[in-house]
Design a binder for these strands. Sequence first.
DNA 1: CTTATAATCAAATCATTGTTTGATTATCGC
DNA 2: GCGATAATCAAACAATGATTTGATTATAAG
Lengths: 199, 199
Amino acid sequence: MARRPASQTVSRRAILEAAARVFHERGYHGATMQDISGAVGLTAGSLYHHFSGGKEAIFLAVLEAGLAQVTADLKAIVALPLPPDEKLRRAICAHVLSVTEHVAVAALMVFEMRTALSLPEAPARYLTARDAFEGLYRQMIAEGIAAGVFRPVDVGVFTRTLLGAANWVSVWYRPEGRLTGVDIAGQIADIFLNALRAG
Amino acid sequence: MARRPASQTVSRRAILEAAARVFHERGYHGATMQDISGAVGLTAGSLYHHFSGGKEAIFLAVLEAGLAQVTADLKAIVALPLPPDEKLRRAICAHVLSVTEHVAVAALMVFEMRTALSLPEAPARYLTARDAFEGLYRQMIAEGIAAGVFRPVDVGVFTRTLLGAANWVSVWYRPEGRLTGVDIAGQIADIFLNALRAG
DNA sequence: CTTATAATCAAATCATTGTTTGATTATCGC
DNA sequence: GCGATAATCAAACAATGATTTGATTATAAG
């Protein structure tokens, strides 16, 4: 057997999507190249045609894509000229929504962050990006406190509490469940804005 | 080489502690028997003397211990005759504190839950225990709402938001950091009680 | 059409790693 | 002290799984 008809060949893109699912289900070490290749109807060896760097390269490519996805929106929102509470609300909604819309990748960035960082090829880029992400939230919260719109809280603890809650959505969200991503995003935003109400 | 002097033999207990650390750092699949045995100064084969069930048995034993640790306190608190807000505050504090005091195990129960459940020997016990745990929180929150002490929120979303935040502490807490476990626990409790304030 | 290239496969390779085995020695109860 | 047992090791074993290789065929370009 050899090259398939054009209609049946698989794209780099398709491989990354399948890989995200597989890595999500089994974890990086738990996922085999066969799992991934099988998910797109290839043999393990064929993956090397698309990603000569092998398993590690595929994994990093998945994360790379996810990272871009998630940070893009947030940066735009932070730059907006809005009152702190409105800005934070939008940020949280966008963040949570993005998690519900890309559960597999979002979960990977949470659960396999450690793995990613311990990989030989792991670019410090990930750490930097994560810190930058957290920094954006810190900034919004600090601004709100300074403006007297938010009650004074420990910015570090609050930010991480918020991030933990948002990330955790990737664990329990079910597309077929009672609540839509928008519902969930709105409610989580409510919770944290309420938590910051002064007085 | 063979049996070491009594002072140098390792206990089952020590193995479990080392294993928790190693599993935490590398993940279940990423951790090798050598990693674990090395951490207590044994060879891989020697572990089978203490745990004939091998890697899987060690992993489950670690989780088992953790599960007991964490649930014990919470149950006691829920049974206490206290006003809903006070009860919830204590529960959150106890929970977060327990996370900071057993980071490795806490993180394992979070990050390797999926692995645990996919293991052949995985007792449904874990799912049950986790649901029971979540149930206790749900109950406290529902009671508070019914009593008019808490504003009405979606109990499901709120509970998971809270759990996510608390679990996440295992990711960022550093014993040598600026804040003690007690500090963090108190602040997180504040955040969520504030979020529930009526009016 | 012809030919170069892209996409694939089957099978071999090679390393890693969980597990087993048999030997060796300290310790403990008698 | 002596034998039984516990704790350990080194080395062998077996399985798994990532990666490589060489062959095979569809497609696209000329």
